[in-house]
Measured scan of single mutants.
Amino acid sequence: QVALSRTQVCGILREELFQGDAFHQSDTHIFIIMGASGDLAKKKIYPTIWWLFRDGLLPENTFIVGYARSRLTVADIRKQSEPFFKATPEEKLKLEDFFARNSYVAGQYDDAASYQRLNSHMNALHLGSQANRLFYLALPPTVYEAVTKNIHESCMSQIGWNRIIVEKPFGRDLQSSDRLSNHISSLFREDQIYRIDHYLGKEMVQNLMVLRFANRIFGPIWNRDNIACVILTFKEPFGTEGRGGYFDEFGIIRDVMQNHLLQMLCLVAMEKPASTNSDDVRDEKVKVLKCISEVQANNVVLGQYVGNPDGEGEATKGYLDDPTVPRGSTTATFAAVVLYVENERWDGVPFILRCGKALNERKAEVRLQFHDVAGDIFHQQCKRNELVIRVQPNEAVYTKMMTKKPGMFFNPEESELDLTYGNRYKNVKLPDAYERLILDVFCGSQMHFVRSDELREAWRIFTPLLHQIELEKPKPIPYIYGSRGPTEADELMKRVGFQYEGTYKWVNPHKL
């Protein structure tokens, strides 16, 4: 086992960053958080920038500027975001240094004079007029057009580079997404736009490419001749908990499936790229999406959770019991969808996408189930092999396979070949997804960000279904809070070829 401390991990990262040409360590950078008073800024962006600063992973002359409508001070920003920093008493001095680099400007999102004030403020910072500028839009999409237009007109660096990070949702359907994309691309070049999907920053999602293309053993079996089906799962054990009003506007397909799960599907299904260059990788992902037809209604199961009468606390409440959810809402909190990649490698292999709230566990994984062994000599005792990439929690890679049961006879039983990170790298604290992705933006690497043509294809696949749901308002199937979801989803999976045995229990190697 390799035991690495946080300091050692960050030392390795620093070495990698400083050796590259793309990370300008000594240049002045300004990180501007648009929507600095909001939840995302408070819980994710400010803490992430602090962790990067604490670990010495930001360029040395980096300033952080918050911008929002609320009249706040840096002290206010500190008060609301610091509880999420997880700072230790030993880091007190470092924390003071961090907040000394912070400033805040209040202004409207659609007022040109406010942006001119913001620009004057940035120019007044040390070497601010020639600094590289990175704008993070932690804002609702309704203000994107006004904000990007004003940034472009008043706040661009004339000497350094300018980059803009856009948070999902990128529209509600193909038409609104196209409108937003066309607007942003009329102001910024594609190499300046970073559409963030934080799932692409997760260690195991990034590991998929290495697993596939750096190991000879997987190449020959990664196709329709050997793989019976692919299941991509995202499960949350909690409901909307008072935030249903926002969720109800989008629903589970827009929230998770059309982005996170579809991105994971691309990494499983794509061909080997010409290189690890950002556009070479994204070219292959677009090719996969172009091979997927629009979702067919007979390959869809929609569910909505109801309270568990035997549960406790939140578990007793259904989705419609959330006071922020519109009365009688038919918005799905669970969806199972089957897609097919219609190309030579994957023809006929079902890709089953499942996601839901208020389920029995927290889990995100990719599961490849292989065909049955031909010419069975073990009297149907063999179960199908599976390769599982567990994204969260407890990152893991393992192969479910058959071995001989101890004893006199040739009785096979299920076991696993474990390729888990935790076994080799004991207690290594890896940077989280937002840390990686923000560092990628500083480096100018777009590999783990969504390109406009990729986004367009993703919406093309799901828009007809979303429009049909909005028009017909089908009643989702009720499922109990804390269950596996509607049984109809299991029946759909069985119908397209997935075999669920229920006889195997994964042993978490992190707890051995």
Rank of each mutant, 00 (worst) to 15 (best):
H448N: 10
M401Y: 15
G307I: 01
F409S: 12
V325A: 06
T399D: 05
R384W: 08
K473C: 14
V325K: 07
K272S: 11
D280Y: 10
G502W: 10
T503D: 14
D347A: 04
A374C: 09
F498P: 14
S445G: 10
T316R: 05
L387Q: 00
F370H: 01
L265P: 02
V507H: 14
F334I: 01
Y481V: 10
D279N: 05
I377D: 04
L353Q: 00
L492I: 12
V281C: 12
G375E: 12
H371Y: 10
K494P: 06
M408L: 06
Q258N: 14
K357H: 11
G356C: 01
L267D: 12
R460D: 01
R384G: 05
C266D: 00
F410Y: 08
K404Q: 15
S293T: 10
V366C: 09
G313T: 14
L302V: 11
F449Q: 01
Y479R: 02
E314K: 09
G313D: 12
P323I: 09
S293M: 04
W346F: 04
S483I: 01
C355E: 01
K363I: 03
D453K: 03
S293E: 05
I389D: 00
T463K: 05
L261G: 03
N308E: 09
V450E: 05
N298L: 11
N508W: 03
Q369M: 14
E271A: 06
L339T: 13
L267C: 12
Q468Y: 09
P406T: 15
S452D: 08
E457T: 03
E395S: 14
K505G: 11
Y340S: 06
N299V: 05
A274I: 04
L465M: 10
A269Q: 02
S452L: 11
R345D: 06
P406A: 14
E294M: 13
C443R: 05
N423H: 06
Q499R: 05
K405F: 10
Y398N: 10
E457W: 01
E454A: 12
R345S: 07
A315D: 09
P474Q: 09
A332M: 03
V450K: 15
P323H: 08
P393S: 04
A396H: 15
L320V: 08
A336G: 06
L465E: 01
L387K: 01
L320I: 12
R327A: 11
A458K: 10
Y481W: 08
G318P: 05
K511M: 15
L455R: 02
R367H: 08
K363S: 15
P478R: 10
G375W: 07
G318H: 05
P476F: 02
H448P: 13
A364D: 09
V366Q: 02
N508K: 12
D372P: 09
H379P: 12
L262G: 03
E284C: 10
M264Y: 14
D283M: 05
Y305K: 02
N308K: 11
V325T: 10
G348K: 05
T420V: 06
G497A: 11
R495G: 08
Y319R: 00
L387F: 06
A269D: 01
R456A: 12
A458V: 12
R390M: 13
F410P: 14
E454S: 12
K405H: 10
Q381Y: 10
K505R: 05
R456F: 04
T487E: 13
C382G: 12
G444K: 05
G313W: 05
G313Q: 03
C291L: 09
V391P: 13
V301S: 04
K400H: 15
G303R: 01
I469L: 06
Q296E: 08
E314V: 05
V300S: 10
Y319W: 07
P486S: 03
P464Q: 08
E312P: 15
L419W: 09
E271D: 11
G356S: 00
D283W: 06
N360I: 02
V286G: 04
P406G: 11
G444P: 00
A336W: 02
P326Q: 14
P478Y: 07
V507M: 15
V349C: 06
V295P: 10
G313L: 14
K287A: 10
E361T: 15
K285H: 12
V349A: 01
K287T: 06
P478F: 05
E284Q: 07
F498A: 15
E435D: 06
T324L: 15
P393D: 09
E271R: 03
G482R: 04
R384I: 02
V306Q: 10
H371M: 09
M264D: 03
W459A: 11
E344Q: 07
L430R: 14
F442E: 01
D321R: 05
L267H: 13
P323E: 11
L267I: 13
M447F: 08
R424S: 14
D376W: 10
T324I: 12
W506K: 15
L368W: 01
K272C: 14
K426W: 12
L471E: 12
D321C: 08
E454C: 13
A332C: 14
K357S: 05
G307T: 05
N423E: 09
P350H: 01
T503S: 14
M264F: 09
G356H: 01
E472C: 11
R362G: 11
N385F: 03
Q381I: 11
A358L: 02
N299P: 08
T399S: 09
L471V: 11
D279V: 11
A458S: 11
G311Q: 13
N394F: 14
E294P: 07
N343K: 03
D453H: 03
D279F: 01
E413M: 11
K429I: 14
T324S: 15
